[in-house]
Design a protein around this nucleic acid. Structure first.
Lengths: 146, 146
DNA sequence: ATGGGGCTTCCCACCATGGGAAGGTCAAGG
DNA sequence: CCTTGACCTTCCCATGGTGGGAAGCCCCAT
């Protein structure tokens, strides 16, 4: 039931590099070693690593993952605490999504107004040159105005 | 009409640190210097810097910004080229948005199923422990199953 | 002329990840 | 028993943008 780092990596889906890194930042405890210094992992360790990998797939940053691992290993945790972390993560995701969506919409609007042919005039560049959407206070620029 | 780096920073909304960095990665040309080595910027430079700042606000990575600045300064560019960059950026934003939305939805579903009170059982942890959505092949784990 | 604020360069840190070098180890097969 | 190749170890470096800070120079106003 002892695996070296490569086997644990395959079994958990986390690269050996990352396993060492997780250890170095104390996300996981220091692995036991063989006499020759090789790290050894148990099936239990692999379970933890898989848990971590899945948590990362939800975009959770390391510190949140750490909290969750702690809660996971505490059989008496109140589910409230877990849910709180999840809700915070959802809120963060939503805020990031809003931000990206705003970028995308603004850009799409400009792109739509750009004919995209061989002519040089382009609302995208004009906008970037001219300031925030709605404000077109370009004065010193002679070119790039449509 | 000559400003030092601090004034240019205020006028463009880009920190002095970043101005030096942009210069070091050749996003902008090397600024002229006074005899004593101070960088000097013109109003034209500030226009370029503002262009860059606005482009960054669309989430454009440096290399794309660089391309755009080049096109912007070329009065004869075909708008097609600009639009292509914009479309690539839009596609990237969309793909990031999808990814985050998938995370958010999966997490929201789990959170919704979690009562979030003082009881310890929690579908969120069970899922993280148990594998991908739909697959609940937990065998070695006695706890965390609902 | 002195003080304070600005400028310069250089190094370090973040976060999570990958690449690679230099050197030790293990197992299989000759 | 020895070689070979695959694995392991640590250490350093890079990414992308950004900020912090130190050491030292410069400029202006008092």
């Amino acid at each position: 039931m002892h695996m070296n780092i490569g086997e644990a990596a395959k079994a958990s889906g986390i690269s050996p590099k990352m396993l060492r890194y997780y250890e170095s930042i104390s996300l996981i405890p220091q692995a036991r070693r063989t006499d020759s210094g090789y790290r050894i992992y148990t099936l239990n360790d692999v379970d933890t690593l898989r848990f971590i990998r899945r948590a990362r797939e939800f975009g959770l940053p390391m510190d949140r993952v750490k909290l969750l691992v702690g809660l996971w290993q505490d059989k008496n945790r109140p589910s409230r605490e877990v849910k709180e972390i999840a809700m915070r993560q959802i809120a963060d995701l939503e805020s990031k999504i809003s931000e990206l969506t705003a970028m995308k919409n603004a850009l799409a609007q400009l792109a739509q107004a750009c004919h995209g042919d061989s002519r040089p005039d382009c609302p995208i560049l004009s906008d970037l040159a001219g300031g925030s959407l709605g404000y077109n206070n370009v004065d010193r620029h002679s070119a790039d105005m449509l």
